[in-house]
């Protein structure tokens, strides 16, 4: 190449870490901030659930407004009341206060979203890193496995699993956990491929090649060098996966295969759809909240992707 020293090394802006830089970029992205706010607000809602709800969970307001358990058949007057001051979102056909139910449902949404994503991305990261770094037959085998799982109609199989489970033990309290596990167990192939792609891109970086030559062991390189470099992509994939998992749970519950013992927005949507003509507000609220939360995560994910883009680092 040409002259050596007429190209002084570029020095990064004084002492700003790449994470701070990304945070700054994120802050400038209005849409991403909106997403963050939405997720934050609903998150707070989920945390404070009993504090901000008006009635206890699954309580029929017609019977005893302070009822701790689902009561007997609701009084007729409590069924399907349109939104009003005492019932901000109205009541549904089971006589429950929709607003309170929404508040309680937020928790399930976050649990499913984050839980399933944690599992899926953990598996995906492991497989992606190993396949991308070691290559060869390891890569081949793992990628074939990925393809097989990817081809399977995950949603259909999920339905079957859930149905079998709830048939065999209808009173089980771990229903939500099963949903989380199954969604997580089937959602890893897509992200795994993407992470592997990123590993392939990153592993040719000089400092990784250099540490290989110094004799650093495979695992050391994997965790100390490769993993941090794929972190940006893992974060983005995670946010988007959370959005997807919430939608999946909603779909599953809508079809009636969800956990009958948990309060989820999906189930509320399903219940409300049976008599949507009489009390359409009971369906509007969960539908809107699902959309809002998913949108929030999507906005956040897109914003993070732009903010963390390694090629824009300077």
């Amino acid at each position: 190449m040409a002259s050596l020293s007429s190209r002084p090394r570029k020095r990064r802006g004084s002492g700003v870490s790449q994470w701070e830089l990304a945070w700054r970029r994120l802050k400038m992205n209005k849409a991403a901030l909106a997403g963050l706010v939405i997720v934050g607000v609903i998150g707070v809602m989920a945390l404070l659930d009993r504090l901000i709800a008006l009635y206890p969970p699954n309580c029929n307001v017609g019977t005893n407004p302070n009822c701790p358990n689902p009561g007997p058949k609701p009084d007729v007057w409590a069924i399907g009341i349109p939104p009003s001051w005492s019932f901000p979102f109205g009541t549904n056909l089971a006589g429950q206060d929709v607003y309170s139910q929404i508040v309680y449902g937020a928790r399930a949404a976050f649990l499913v979203g984050i839980g399933a994503t944690a599992i899926a991305l953990a598996i995906a990261t492991l497989i992606g890193l190993v396949a991308g770094y070691f290559g060869g037959w390891v890569d081949n085998v793992l990628m074939r496995l990925t393809e097989v799982v990817l081809v399977l109609p995950f949603f259909l199989i999920l339905l079957v699993f859930l149905r079998i489970l709830f048939t065999l033990s209808p009173g089980a309290s771990g229903g939500l956990l099963v949903i989380i596990l199954v969604i997580g167990a089937f959602s890893w192939p897509g992200p795994a491929r993407i992470i592997r792609g990123e590993v392939l891109r990153v592993r040719e970086f000089e400092y990784i090649v250099a540490s290989r030559q110094i004799g650093a062991s495979g695992f050391r390189i994997l965790f100390r060098h490769l993993f941090p470099n794929t972190l940006h992509i893992i974060i983005v994939l995670s946010t988007l996966q959370i959005a997807g998992s919430i939608l999946t749970e909603a779909a599953v519950s809508f079809l009636g295969f969800g956990d009958p013992n948990s309060i989820t927005w999906g189930r509320q949507l399903a219940d409300a759809s049976e008599a949507v003509k009489q009390a359409w507000w009971a369906g509007l609220a969960p539908g809107i909240f699902i959309t809002l939360l998913v949108m929030g995560f999507n906005l956040l994910g897109n914003g993070l992707r732009d903010a963390l883009d390694p090629r824009l680092r300077e």
């Binding site: 050596l4 020293s5 007429s6 002084p8 090394r9 570029k10 020095r11």
Partner: peptide
């Protein structure tokens, strides 16, 4: 010796 331009762009 090879001289180098000190400083940065």
């Amino acid at each position: 010796r090879l001289s180098v331009i000190q400083g940065n762009i």
